[in-house]
Design a binder for these strands. Structure first.
Lengths: 146, 146
DNA sequence: ATTAATGCAAACGGTTTGCACTACT
DNA sequence: AGTAGTGCAAACCGTTTGCATTAAT
C-alpha cells in the first residue's frame, strides 16, 4: 500500500459537494505515479504531457483542494518554490546540496534530536514537512576522484 | 564591534575596480542599521525611505556585489523569498512560526545536534544560514489565555 | 577617457485572481 | 437547475535583464 486510496478520491470529493472532473483525473493520475516531491510547475508540466490542454490555474486550484483533503501537502524548496508531496508519506523534510543540487529526504528519525531540543528549549514544535536543510553532501564536501 | 568595517567598504570596492556611489551608500547605510535578516524587497523599501528615487534593480545588483565581497549572505525564507543577512553575524538559521508568522534566530548552538548527526550519519555539512525550520512556536502551540 | 553603475522599462517565472462559460451532480 | 469547476487572460510579486545614459575613477 504505497499511497492513499486514489480510487476513493472521486467519492471523497463528492461527499464534500465537490466534483470529479477530467482535469482532476489527469492531476491525480500524475500524482499517483509521483515519488517524493514535486514543484507546482513540475506538476503542471507533467499534466501537460498527459493533456496538452492543461491550464496552470486549474492545476493549482486542484492542488489546493487536494491539500484540504489531506492528499498532498506542500512546503518550500531551497529556492523557494512550492513543493508538493503525496501523503501518507512519513512526514519528512529535505536535505539539499547547494553544490550539486541533489535533494534527499530527511526523516523524522534523522531530525529527532533537532525536533526534541527545539521542543525542550523553546517549546517550538517543528513541522518537518516544511523544513529544508541546505548544505553540502558527502560527495561534494569530500570529492573522491575516479 | 557589531558589524564588519563598513568604513572600509568604499576602498574594498575600489580595490576591485568597483565604485562607491550614492546609491550604494544608501543601501549600505540601511544594511548597517539592520539587525537579523531582511528580504530583498524589504531592503528596497527601506532604501526608498531614505531615497525615494531608489530603483529596485540597483539594490539587487548591489546586493550581488556585496555578497561577492562577503558583506552579506542570502538564503530563503519559509515563503521562498530571498533573505539577506549581514556578516559576520554568527552563522545561524531561522525558526519560523507558521501560525503567527514570527521568526527567531536559530543559533549554531541550537542546531548543534542536527549538524552533528547529519555530518556523522550522512557526511552532510549543514549550511545553517540557509536553513529555516518551520513549525509552531510555544505561544501558538499552547495558547495561554489572558 | 574609461568603463562601472545607474535609471528605466520591459520581461521574467511561478502563482493567483476575476469573470463569463461549461459541465458535473 | 444549481453551482463547482474550467479556460482564459490579466494581474500579481519579487526579481532579473537589456540598453542607452550618467558619473566615478
Amino acid at each position: 500500500m504505497t499511497s492513499p486510496s486514489w480510487e476513493s478520491l472521486p467519492d471523497r470529493l463528492r461527499a464534500r459537494g465537490l466534483r470529479w472532473t477530467p482535469q482532476r483525473r489527469v492531476l491525480v493520475d500524475v500524482l499517483s505515479s509521483t515519488r517524493g516531491h514535486v514543484t507546482g510547475s513540475e506538476l503542471v508540466e507533467r499534466c501537460r504531457a498527459v493533456d496538452p490542454a492543461t491550464i496552470p490555474s486549474t492545476v493549482y486550484r486542484t492542488l489546493d483542494v487536494l491539500e484540504d483533503l489531506g492528499v498532498v501537502r506542500h512546503g518550500h524548496g531551497p529556492d523557494g518554490r512550492e513543493e508538493f508531496h503525496v501523503l501518507p508519506e512519513a512526514e519528512h523534510g529535505h536535505l539539499h546540496c547547494e553544490s550539486c543540487g541533489t535533494s534527499w529526504d530527511l526523516s523524522l528519525d534523522d531530525a529527532r534530536t533537532l525536533v526534541r531540543s527545539l521542543r525542550a528549549r523553546r517549546g517550538f514544535v517543528v513541522d518537518l514537512s516544511h523544513v529544508t536543510i541546505v548544505g553540502r553532501c558527502a560527495g561534494c564536501v569530500d570529492p573522491t576522484p575516479p
